[in-house]
């Protein structure tokens, strides 16, 4: 319970900071009053939707990452590394072209990528799972680029911004919908908590503890697909968030695996902080939040590999 409380407090502080920070800093009292009066333009139109979206998407991706890592017992098998996010982006672009529901397109894209990776890597162990994921992700993003090139110019500019993970066009309705989805996911996690608590223990031990593995797998993969699709729809393909959230949450708070809720909260903290950083570094340019996230995440991956190597040496 303690890690969740700690991280919730940290998230609260970050959200407050994100609301007061930006091109013009607001005094804490102004933020507080601005929150309750709908006339405050800076808070209600500019900062609140963006921050709410960052929190919602961060929660979704952090939870999805921790679920996937626990199910596969592989810290690398997160939706962004194994191609789910890229699959969702491809689905997004295709759905735009076909004029169908974008969320449906993203869900189908993510599910398709997941299915492809599972089918390819069947019975070949966790390493193959990640390798095939990288391949599937690369294929999907190349296909996205090709489709994008055939689109009209106005769409291209808009899509390029979306593809680099931007929160600039956030609105409260999207944030609310995503937050609703996350709350549903949290409810499902609590409902299945008995089984989910045994993630990371491996198939044999889990079966021995009476976990119905097929049901658990279906639950986890379904949740991961929907959460990834929803978050990608809202903020674009943001890399490395799902990958860093869970290990960072465990390192900071000492939570024990699977640490689902700490991971979700850490994801929200990271994305809120990254968005704030993006706004502070370049207030006039729309610097994509995804870029900042990559600049945090990629060095972490390098550090991860480096420390693993030192451990084995």
């Amino acid at each position: 319970m303690k890690p969740v409380i700690t991280l919730s407090l940290a998230l609260g502080c970050l959200v407050f900071l994100a609301l007061s920070g930006g091109r013009d800093w607001l005094a804490p009292a102004d933020v507080w009053h601005g929150l309750w009066s709908t006339e405050n333009f800076v808070i209600h139109v500019l900062r609140l939707p963006r921050t709410a979206l960052a929190v919602a998407a961060g929660l979704a991706l952090g939870l999805a990452g921790a679920l996937m890592q626990g199910l596969t017992r592989n810290p690398l098998a997160t939706p962004d590394v194994i191609g789910l996010v890229q699959g969702a982006s491809l689905g997004h672009i295709v759905a735009l072209g076909l004029g169908t529901s974008v969320f449906l397109g993203e869900t189908v894209g993510a599910a398709f990528a997941l299915f492809a990776v599972i089918a390819l890597a069947r019975e070949q162990g966790p390493i193959a799972f990640v390798l095939y994921g990288i391949g599937v992700g690369a294929t999907a993003s190349a296909a996205t680029t090709v489709i994008l090139l055939r689109a009209p110019d106005a769409t291209i500019t808009q899509m390029m911004l979306w593809l680099s993970g931007s929160l600039a066009r956030a609105d409260l309705a999207t944030a609310g919908a995503l937050l609703g989805g996350v709350i549903c996911a949290v409810f499902i996690v609590l409902w299945r908590a008995r089984d989910l608590r045994t993630l990371w223990l491996g198939d044999d031990v889990m079966t021995g503890l009476g976990v119905n593995l097929p049901v658990l797998r279906f639950t986890v993969l379904g949740l991961v697909t929907l959460l990834t699709a929803g978050a990608t729809l809202a903020v674009g393909p943001i890399g490395f968030l799902a990958f860093t959230a869970a290990p960072l949450a465990r390192a900071v708070t000492g939570a024990e695996p699977p640490a689902l809720f700490p991971a979700a909260l850490m994801g929200a903290c990271l994305l809120t902080a990254a968005d704030l950083a993006a706004r502070l570094i370049a207030p006039l340019v729309t610097l994509p939040t995804g870029l900042i996230m990559t600049l945090i995440g990629a060095p972490y991956l390098i550090f991860f590999l480096w420390s693993e190597k030192r451990k084995t040496a």
């Binding site: 990371w200 223990l201 491996g202 044999d204 031990v205 021995g208 009476g210 465990r250 024990e256 695996p257």
Partner: peptide, 19 residues
């Protein structure tokens, strides 16, 4: 019901890093 009657430990339990 089975798990309340039988406990099972595999030959090589997974390595868990921070539990």
């Amino acid at each position: 019901a089975r798990a309340r009657q039988i406990a099972f430990l595999p030959q090589e339990p997974p390595m868990l890093t921070d539990m």
